[in-house]
């Protein structure tokens, strides 16, 4: 398996405050990688560092050998990074369908079957009947589907999912993750940032545990040892 997204010594700081102290993370094609850690450990900062949305970054973020650090968010979206942001960020003035279509305006083709509205509705049939409603009128789970659909429409090579399970019922979380596993089996690289540690380990191939802006532990999810992870998670 070849590495698709290669993060080396990623540092991120906001003014004087250092959020990331040099992270190394790798994701290969078709792989699901979980990033776990407590609140404030730097999980979301990792996403922000990759997308270059805030703060000053240094280090390297390479997608298929191409440096992303220093690019603008529009360039990063076009390069093949699809973002499912924390809190879903659905636009209320846009219908479900328009929210999804918006993703299509951000990305570009990287080979493979391009994503279309039809394919999104196939993936998330619940959305079909509600396509003309305002995006924010749907349930939390369905809004998460819109957010994933929107990210997929950019035809990403790597999908970044920030706290997908937050505030959702377990059955919905299971369904969403099943879809992500299916997507990964088709070759998509998926990075999930999760506070729900068990769930994240259950669905991922490998994991990175982050503590105070550093990787405190990483490995194969199936081999993860609960005690060691708890130590890496809480720092004692």
């Amino acid at each position: 398996m070849t590495t698709l997204l290669e993060i080396r010594d990623l540092r991120l700081q906001y003014g004087q405050f250092k959020a990331l102290h040099g992270l190394d993370v790798e994701i290969a094609e078709g792989e699901i990688v979980a990033v776990i850690g407590a609140n404030g450990a730097g999980k979301s900062s990792l996403i922000k560092g990759i997308c270059c949305t805030e703060g000053q970054t240094s280090g390297s973020v390479k997608l298929d050998g191409r440096e992303l650090l220093g690019l603008t968010p529009p360039q990063i979206a076009r390069a093949g990074i699809g973002l499912v942001p924390e809190g879903r960020r659905i636009f209320p003035s846009l219908s479900v369908e328009e929210n999804i279509l918006l993703g299509g305006q951000l990305g570009q083709d990287h080979g493979g079957t391009p994503w279309t509205l039809e394919r999104i509705y196939e993936l998330f049939p619940d959305l079909t009947a509600k396509r003309h409603l305002s995006g924010t009128m749907l349930s939390g789970g369905q809004q998460q589907m819109i957010a994933i659909g929107r990210a997929l429409m950019t035809n990403p090579r790597v999908l970044l999912c920030d706290e997908i399970s937050l505030g959702l019922a377990p059955t919905i979380i299971n369904r969403l993750y099943e879809q992500l596993i299916a997507l990964a089996s088709e070759g998509l690289a998926v990075l999930v940032v999760e506070q729900a540690m068990r769930k994240a380990l259950e669905i991922s191939d490998r994991y990175y545990c982050i503590l105070e802006g550093r990787v405190s532990l990483s490995g194969i999810s199936a081999d993860a040892d609960e005690d060691r992870i708890a130590q890496a998670y809480f720092g004692r």
Binding site: A77, P85, F91
Partner: peptide
């Protein structure tokens, strides 16, 4: 139009639109 869609998204929430990669 797609441009109109982007306009409305930016009008709704500029920060979110920028984060997702709208120029």
């Amino acid at each position: 139009t797609g441009f109109g869609r982007a306009l409305r998204a930016v009008s709704d929430n500029e920060a979110n639109a920028a984060m997702l990669g709208l120029d």
